[in-house]
Amino acid sequence: MLITALVTWCAVAIPSLLALSQAPAWTWLPHLMLLPLILLVTNESQQSYGYTFRYWLLAVMAVLIQCAGFMLPSSVYLIYSVMLIAILTFYLSPMQSYCYIFFASLAYPLTQTLYWAQPLPWVETALFASFHLFSFVVSHRMREERAAKEQAQLANSQLLATQSLLGQSVSRQERLHLARELHDDVGHQLTSLIVNLDVARRTAQEPLKSQLQQSYTLARETLEKIRTLVSDKRTEQPLDLETVLTELIHHVPRIEISLTFQPHPVTQSLSHAHCILRACQESITNTLKHSNATKLHIEFGPSAAADFRMKITDNGTGAKHSEPGNGLLGLQERVRELKGDFAWQSSPEGFVVQVSFKETPVNE
Rank of each mutant, 00 (worst) to 15 (best):
Val195His: 14
Gln189Ser: 07
Gln158Phe: 04
Gln173Val: 06
Arg180Pro: 03
Gln153Tyr: 01
Glu181Asp: 08
Ala161Val: 03
Gln153Pro: 00
Lys149Glu: 14
Thr191Lys: 02
Glu144Pro: 00
Leu159Phe: 08
Met142Leu: 15
Ser192Tyr: 06
Leu178Trp: 02
Leu182Gln: 05
His188Val: 14
Ala179Asn: 05
Leu165Ala: 09
Glu181Met: 10
Glu145Phe: 08
Ser192Trp: 11
Gln173Gly: 02
Arg175Trp: 08
Leu160Asn: 01
Arg146Glu: 08
Thr162Glu: 05
Asn156Thr: 11
Gln158His: 07
Val138Gln: 07
Asn196Pro: 08
Ser169Ile: 12
Glu150Trp: 00
Ala152Gly: 01
Ser169Tyr: 10
Glu181His: 12
Leu165Ile: 01
Thr191Tyr: 15
Asp184Pro: 00
Glu181Thr: 10
Arg146Ile: 10
Glu174Met: 05
Leu159Trp: 08
Glu145His: 06
Gln189Phe: 02
Thr191Val: 04
Gly167Gln: 11
Ala152Asp: 10
Ser171Pro: 09
Ala155Ser: 06
Gly167His: 06
Leu160Phe: 04
Leu154Glu: 00
Leu178Pro: 07
Thr162Trp: 10
Met142Gln: 15
Leu182Arg: 10
Lys149Asn: 09
Val195Phe: 14
Arg175Lys: 12
Glu174Asp: 09
Gln168Glu: 09
Ala148Trp: 02
Asn156Gly: 05
Val170Phe: 11
Asp185Val: 12
Ile194Trp: 14
Ala179His: 04
Ser169Cys: 03
Leu160Ile: 00
Leu166Glu: 14
Leu166Tyr: 00
Gln173Ile: 10
His188Gln: 15
Leu159Gln: 13
Thr191Phe: 15
Arg143Ile: 02
Glu144Ile: 09
Thr162Arg: 05
Gln168Ala: 11
Gln151Gly: 06
Glu181Val: 07
Glu145Asp: 11
Leu182Met: 15
Ser171Tyr: 15
Arg146Ala: 03
Arg141Trp: 15
Thr162Phe: 09
Ile194Cys: 08
Arg143Leu: 00
Arg146Asn: 14
Leu178Phe: 04
His177Glu: 00
Glu150Ile: 02
Leu182Asp: 10
Gln153Cys: 04
Gln153Ala: 06
Arg180Asn: 14
Ser157Trp: 01
Gln189Thr: 07
Ser192Leu: 15
Glu174Trp: 05
Gln163Trp: 00
Ser139Tyr: 02
Ser171Gly: 04
Thr162Gln: 08
Gln189Ala: 11
Arg180Cys: 06
Ser139Met: 12
Ala148Val: 03
Arg175Asn: 12
Val186Gly: 00
Gln173Asn: 12
His183Asp: 10
Leu190Asn: 09
Val195Ile: 08
Ser192Lys: 12
Thr191His: 15
Lys149Met: 03
Arg146Thr: 14
Ser192Pro: 02
Leu193Asp: 01
Leu154Ala: 04
Arg141Gln: 15
Glu144Gln: 06
Leu178Glu: 05
Gln189His: 13
Leu160Gly: 01
Ser169Lys: 07
